[in-house]
């Protein structure tokens, strides 16, 4: 019996001792790059962050990425070869930013390809939104709200709506504070509306000024990014906890990330003096005087 047990045990040990003891990484080599960026028709120079899809979490080392990045205007056929550059960020990490010296055309679609040395390609198609000139609307006032609004006619969508407070202190220094609009941007039949409640935003801005809040309000602007139609976050909100998933917001083929088409536009919606006084600001005068 003992002999049988011992030999059985030994056979098992010998059989299984040869089992592999290493872990096989499952890195997806078919997705060479993650790309982020915005093609901006208001700028003559474009920039894209190109990130290699790495097998581990170790920080990226400074150096050329070796990727060939080319953009093609699918309407005109014009091609641009983008140039690599190494950037050191504020936290000491390095990354690669590719720049393209061209101004995208409103309404055109661009194909962008990042080709690795082994031929693997990450690509995206980006449509630049049309030119939009926003139209301010009359302020809507009631007891609890002063709604400042503007129309972005023909905009495929708007992102990052903000209220810009341009102020001036007694020393003639300009102070600018930007807050997210307190009301959500909304689509309408021919474009988008951006609105904010001045009675909500203004106290927030005054609070952020601290004790130095004896300033004159020069102007209130509504600002938004006129964005390509596919620049839509899942759930309608740019929540990093959701969008961190690589499939949550992407227009990249064989890679991850997102390349948007868009540009920033401001429109002046400065309210009446009576409304400015109601929230504690003074109207702008010479060097903040009234």
């Amino acid at each position: 019996m003992a002999r049988f047990l011992i030999s059985s045990l030994a056979a098992l040990v010998v059989t299984l001792a040869g089992c592999a003891d290493f872990v096989e990484p499952t890195t997806d080599a078919g997705r060479p790059y993650t790309v982020y960026g915005v093609l901006d028709p208001t700028s003559g120079s474009q920039a894209l962050r190109v990130i290699p899809f790495a097998p581990d979490l170790n920080p990226q080392q400074p150096g050329s990425l070796g990727a060939e990045v080319i953009s093609t205007d699918l309407q005109t056929g014009e091609q641009t070869v983008w140039a690599d550059s190494v950037v050191e960020f504020g936290n000491g990490f390095f990354g690669n930013v590719y720049s393209g010296g061209f101004r995208p055309i409103y309404g055109d679609t661009y194909r962008i390809e990042a080709r690795r040395e082994d031929g693997a390609v990450t690509s995206a198609e980006v449509t630049i939104p049309p030119f939009v000139e926003p139209l301010p609307l009359a302020a809507s006032t009631n007891v609890t709200q002063v709604v400042l609004s503007a129309l972005w006619p023909a905009a495929p969508r708007v992102n990052q709506p903000q209220a810009v407070f341009v102020m001036q202190d007694n020393e003639c220094d300009e102070i600018i504070d930007v807050v997210p609009t307190s009301l959500a941007a909304a689509p309408f039949e021919f474009g988008w509306t951006v609105s904010t409640d001045f009675l909500t935003d203004a106290p927030l801005v005054r609070e952020r000024l601290g004790s130095n809040n004896n300033v004159g309000l020069v102007a209130v602007l509504l600002r938004a990014v006129v964005a390509s139609e596919d620049w839509v976050p899942r759930g309608g909100v740019f929540d990093p906890e959701v969008l961190v998933d690589p499939n949550a917001l992407t227009n990249i083929t064989d890679g991850f990330g997102f390349i948007g088409g868009g540009y920033v536009v401001d429109v002046d919606v400065t309210p009446d003096v009576s409304i400015i006084n109601r929230v504690g600001f003074r109207p702008a005068g010479p060097c903040g005087g009234g």
Partner: peptide
């Protein structure tokens, strides 16, 4: 087992790739 690692940048509007490293 992960497919790999990259960085996440919350692209919600204007973006300066020279400044934002991402997570």
């Amino acid at each position: 087992s992960p497919l790999g690692f990259d960085s996440f940048i919350l692209l919600d509007g204007a973006f300066d790739p020279y400044e934002e490293n991402g997570d």
